[in-house]
Design a protein around this nucleic acid. Structure first.
Length: 486
DNA sequence: TGAAATGTTGGGGCG
DNA sequence: ACGCCCCAACATTTC
């Protein structure tokens, strides 16, 4: 095959690396001097229980369009296909005479199995099938403790990982790509039917710019000042105090190496060094999530701590619905759930609050929350989503102890003191004066009347009393310990 | 990356 | 001047 290397094309199989910068698979292909065929295969069935949800599909549609435009400019258009990855890759390699297929790794359990299988089949066909690390700072198998086992505690993982390797500097995009000699059949991105049939994506469109350029812009804006106060401002949902890179990182529109090095670079020269370290640590949390998913693949649906299999979860679909719709009667919770529904994203501080509320106040299974987030988040990511929910439920690695129950009222007063966030997303409370927008159920009758609010009509009464719910949750947890002791 | 309950301390009012 | 009490502020423990 090496004899054909300059004329036989290389297929670059795009997946969750929808960018042309710092893309090892693409760069290796371009540097080989051979014609490069960029390929995307839409095969959601292969994601098993975790087919991309509605918000993710919307994002993917737009991200693919941007990638296609960038690849056009580089000289070799994106080929889009629909079907089973294995048969498409084999047939397509045959059809084009490709001698190689390159891709960047993904780490979801079902993807790993699939990709291993594909690699084996392609190699059997005599094809140079190679995978690269384009999506992580540290490979999950690189970071192990003294006993050669995966870390289960973040601080230990963080220390070990950052001591072990310093992430390589990002590589630039290829200047141009050699196109294959023959024109190649492709379906159009619209044919993949990724966009919703009913147009509910208006809020997403207002909020986001999918694609590599949008990712760059968010990074630039973050670096131009926000990052310096990240440590404190990241906790205030009414403020743009975070990088808002999560969906871009999920789809690989920007590499974690790029973000890591950009932040490190400014850390040398300007202020906010502590805040920048805090941010870098968050990037390592993302790594930790992938590390855990790789080593504990069952945790997408089962608790890592087995005693939680016996947890007495409630089975209340009405309560779930109230939570999903942002009608729990707790303004901060409702604001978060409505922000999610409207924008496909939720501020991280509020994610912790709504997750705690679902799991501890409503006693509903964390898996229900994970599924809802999966469908509604534009940054839905199996590793991060799994870690987040297991952490909130107290059943995961390095999880918040179960008795750590967030008080939605205190969180609201602490992090949204002026109610800006609440009033943005729960406009029916807009006229309520301080402090009653935090806790309308405790507001004097005349205040409610003046603000045009009738509890139970214009805004719900709390669906559960937090004080009672907290005791109930602690009691449920105690029963679990009793079972575990037997 | 929690919150509530309980314990401790120390300043000030007051007899 | 002194002891007592109250209570806010802070610290520690517990869930």
């Amino acid at each position: 095959m090496t004899t054909h290397a300059s004329t036989a094309p290389v297929i670059v199989w795009f997946r969750q690396d929808l960018r042309i910068n710092d893309n090892p698979a693409l760069n290796t292909a371009a540097e080989s001097g051979a014609p490069v065929i960029p390929l995307f295969v839409w095969s959601p069935e292969e994601d098993g229980d975790w087919e991309p949800g509605g918000a993710s599909r919307w994002w993917l549609h737009h991200s693919l369009s941007r990638l296609a435009a960038d690849l056009d400019k580089l000289g070799s258009p994106l080929v889009v296909k629909r079907g089973y990855s294995l048969s498409i890759l084999r047939d397509f390699a045959k059809e084009t005479g490709a001698h190689a297929v390159y891709w960047n790794r993904r780490y979801e359990p079902s993807t790993i199995v699939r990709d291993k299988n594909i690699k084996g089949a392609l190699v059997k066909d005599g094809i140079d099938a190679r995978s690269f690390n384009g999506n992580l700072l540290f490979e999950p198998w690189q970071v192990l403790n003294g006993k050669n086992e995966p870390y289960k505690v973040f601080t230990a993982y963080h220390k070990s990982a950052t001591n072990l390797v310093s992430p390589p500097a990002p590589a630039e995009a290829p200047k141009k790509l050699k196109a294959p000699a023959k024109k190649i059949q492709s379906v159009s991105i619209s044919d993949l039917m990724l966009l919703p049939k009913i147009n509910w994506a208006g809020g997403l469109k207002e909020t986001w710019k999918p694609g590599e350029l949008g990712a760059r812009e968010n990074l630039e804006e973050f670096l131009s000042g926000i990052v310096e106060d990240y440590k404190t401002e990241r906790d205030r949902p009414s403020v743009v105090g975070t990088s808002r890179l999560s969906p871009h990182l999920h789809f690989g529109e920007i590499s974690p190496r790029t973000v890591w090095h950009a932040v490190r670079e400014t850390q040398k020269s300007s202020k906010g060094s502590e805040s920048k370290s805090t941010y870098l640590k968050e990037l390592v949390w993302r790594e930790f999530a992938h590390h855990l998913l790789y080593h504990f693949p069952l945790t997408t649906s089962a608790p890592l701590r087995h005693e939680f299999e016996h947890f007495p979860w409630a089975d209340d679909k009405e309560a779930l619905k109230a939570w999903q719709k942002g009608k729990t009667g707790y303004p901060l919770v409702d604001a978060g759930m409505r922000e999610l529904w409207h924008t496909g994203w939720m501020h991280n501080r509020v994610r912790m609050v709504v997750a705690s509320f679902l799991v501890k106040d409503l006693l509903l299974p964390w898996q229900w929350g994970a599924e809802w987030f999966w469908d509604t988040l534009v940054d839905a990511d199996l590793a991060n989503n799994t870690l987040g929910w297991q952490w909130s439920a107290g059943c995961g690695a390095d999880a918040a102890p179960y008795f750590r129950v967030f008080n939605p009222l205190l969180q609201s007063k602490k992090f949204d003191p002026d109610g800006k966030y609440i009033k943005l997303w729960v406009p029916e409370l807009a006229n309520l004066p301080k402090p009653w927008f935090h806790n309308p159920w405790e507001a004097p009758a005349e205040v409610l009347k003046e603000s045009g609010i009738t509890l139970g009509k214009t805004y719900p009464k709390p669906i559960v009393d937090h004080g009672f719910a907290r005791e109930r949750a602690l009691h449920a947890f105690k029963s679990l310990k009793a079972v575990a002791a037997k």
